[in-house]
Design a protein around this nucleic acid. Structure first.
Lengths: 135, 135
DNA sequence: CTCCGTGCAAATACTTTGCAAAGCG
DNA sequence: CGCTTTGCAAAGTATTTGCACGGAG
C-alpha cells in the first residue's frame, strides 16, 4: 500500500497488527501483541500512532467498550456486534443494507445538522458466553 | 411514577434532572446542575445513582462522547446525532423506521449471537458549529 | 437495630503529554 | 542540519470504591 511507504518501522508494525486482526483491539492489546517482537516499544507510542491513523483515515474507533477504546482498520462502514458479557466485538456481515441512501439527508434535514457518517452497533450475548451461563 | 416512590431525595433529584433534559448529560453536568440546590451532593453519588438507574432499566448510556459517558432517561430505542465539534448529542426524531423488525434475527443468525438491543448514531457537524466555522 | 444511601477521599483505569534523545533524509 | 518518531515518566481525566456516618423504618 503506497501510503505506508514512509512509515517508521514501529508505525508500520502497529498498523499491520491492527489491520491483520478482526478483534477490534484496544491499544493495550496491540501493545501486548507487539511487545515480545519489539522489546523497546512503549504503550504511549501505540496510542500516538492509533491517533495518527485515525487522522490519516487509515483507522477508526469502533467506540468505547467496557472503558477502553476499540479500533478498526477496516474503513468500510459496517455494523458491529458487542457482547455485553465478554466485550468481544465482531463484524456484522453486511449482506443486507441497514441504512438506505437517503437517511443522511433525512437526518440532516430533521436535525438541522450535516451528517457525515454513522455507526450501528448491536448488543447482546455471544454464543460462548451463553454456553458458559448454562453451567 | 410508581417506581420512584421509594427513592431517596437525592436519588429522585438526580433522576428528575436526567429525565427533564434532552442534553443527554454527563454525570458531571447533572452534578453541576443540582449542586446549587443540594449543596451537600457529591459527584460520587451521582455516578452511583446513574449506575443504579441503568440497572433498574430507568436510564441508559448513549455512549462515550469525548471521553465522557452520556446518559438518557428516554428508554425508547431511538437514534442520536453527535456533533463532532461541540459534542452536543441530539435525538433524531424517529419519523421513519431505521431498522426493520427482522434485523435482530438476521444478525443473531449471521453472527451466532443473541441480539438484545442496538444503537444507531450519526456523526457530523451541527448548524451552530458550522456557523462558527464560517467566521 | 438494621439497612440503605451518602460524603469524602483515595484508588483505579485509561489515555495524553512534556521532554530529551534517537532516527532519518 | 531539520523534521519526525520515540521511550519514559509524569500528568490528566473520568470513574469507582472503601469506609464510617446518618437517617428512615
Amino acid at each position: 500500500m503506497q501510503i505506508k511507504r514512509n512509515f517508521s518501522a514501529k508505525r508500520e508494525a502497529i498498523y499491520d497488527t491492527l489491520a491483520s486482526t478482526k478483534t477490534h483491539p484496544t491499544a493495550e492489546w496491540v501493545y501486548n501483541k507487539l511487545k515480545p517482537e519489539i522489546s523497546d516499544l512503549s504503550l504511549g507510542t501505540v496510542y500516538r500512532n492509533l491517533t495518527v491513523f485515525k487522522e490519516m483515515g487509515l483507522a477508526k474507533s469502533v467506540g468505547v467498550v467496557n472503558g477502553q477504546e476499540r479500533f478498526d482498520a477496516d474503513m468500510s462502514p459496517h455494523p458491529h456486534f458487542v457482547c455485553t458479557k465478554c466485550f468481544k466485538v465482531i463484524d456484522v456481515p453486511n449482506g443486507r443494507n441497514f441504512v438506505d441512501g437517503n437517511i443522511y439527508d433525512y437526518v440532516s434535514r430533521e436535525c438541522n445538522v450535516n451528517v457525515e457518517t454513522h455507526s450501528i452497533t448491536f448488543y447482546g450475548v455471544c454464543s460462548s458466553c451463553a454456553e458458559q451461563d448454562k453451567e
